[in-house]
Amino acid sequence: MEHILRPIYQERASQPDTLGVIIVKKVEDAENITDTFDTVLFIIVREAEVPVFTKHYLHENQKMVMHVVKEETLNKWLFIGSKKRVVDWIFHGKILFDRNEYLVKLRSKLQEHPFFGRKIKTGIQFAKLIRRTLEGKELFNRENYLDAYSNVIESLHHLASLSVIDKGLYPEVTVWSQVKKIEPQIYKLYEELVFSKESLEKKLELLFLAIEFMINSRTHEGAQHILETMLKKDVWTVQELHTNNELKFYSGDLEVFVEYLIDKGFIRVEQVESKNELIQHRLYRVDKELVESKYDL
């Protein structure tokens, strides 16, 4: 199949913005690795009009897909850990083109520095955990137990991902297989939710208590990235937080995370006069003394 795709990737490789080209072939009994395609052509470029450009091809009943991805977008995926298959493609795919050893160096960085992006990955997963838990508790208090159940499942999944990241690993598609080995306590919570014979209401009540305990015990690590980032500037507007190069990856979970850290005393709210005498601007400042004492900065 490689020879069929050669004209396509050679054309891409001739363009100055192309950094690397990888080909990945379907493995028997593992179609999901290539998203059910027989072959994946993964191309990384420095700049492009769109973050991800995709084309499908067909040759003698063989399905092929080409993904052209901006370097910025790839880095976001690696930081957030949102595209687990892409990590697998980078590690195990065949390199067809590599400008200035871009892919070789990227593989080396991922292999030799397993904590690459660990702080931001931890922060993002922790923010998602807080949101899912808060939403789940609200649903539980309104006796919407099935919807609360869905949120608890997601909360446990974020806890599982946090435990995997903490070990310097990449969360795999089969994250629970990983967690069973490295964090049996969290795996046991998952089993209790799925297999316990207690009523759904009772199971959820106990699990919310356990999850909240784990959130409190992980706040120190979960908040490190956002607090260290915010220390680079005295006072922040919410828009400045959303547009920061790293904090923007928190997306819709950012404001919930900030409110959580306000409750915990890590962030202080400052009121500044606005043009309207009846309202004030709400700005945010890290409690520098508290944070520096907690993190030995």
Rank of each mutant, 00 (worst) to 15 (best):
K109L: 04
N100W: 00
E60N: 13
F42T: 04
K121Y: 05
F115M: 14
G93E: 01
S108F: 02
N75E: 15
G93D: 03
K76R: 12
K83V: 02
M66H: 03
K63D: 09
G93K: 04
T122F: 10
L78I: 13
G136E: 07
K137F: 00
N75D: 10
I80M: 12
Y57G: 09
G136A: 05
K55V: 03
I120T: 07
F42D: 01
R99L: 12
V65I: 15
I95V: 15
E112F: 10
V104L: 08
K137P: 05
T122K: 04
I90N: 03
E72H: 01
F91M: 13
R46C: 07
T39P: 00
V65C: 13
S82Q: 08
I90Y: 07
N75V: 02
F37V: 11
E101P: 02
R118K: 15
V86E: 08
I124Q: 02
Q62F: 06
H92E: 08
F116Q: 09
T133C: 05
D98F: 03
W77F: 10
E49T: 15
K83L: 05
E49C: 09
K137M: 11
D88S: 06
L41V: 09
G136W: 00
R85S: 09
I120G: 08
L139K: 10
F37P: 06
E49W: 06
R132E: 12
R118S: 00
L41I: 11
V45W: 01
F91Y: 12
A127Y: 05
L110S: 04
L58D: 14
A48T: 12
E112H: 12
P114I: 03
K83N: 09
E112M: 13
S82M: 01
Y57F: 14
V86P: 08
N61R: 15
L106T: 09
E135G: 12
T73E: 14
F115N: 08
I44C: 11
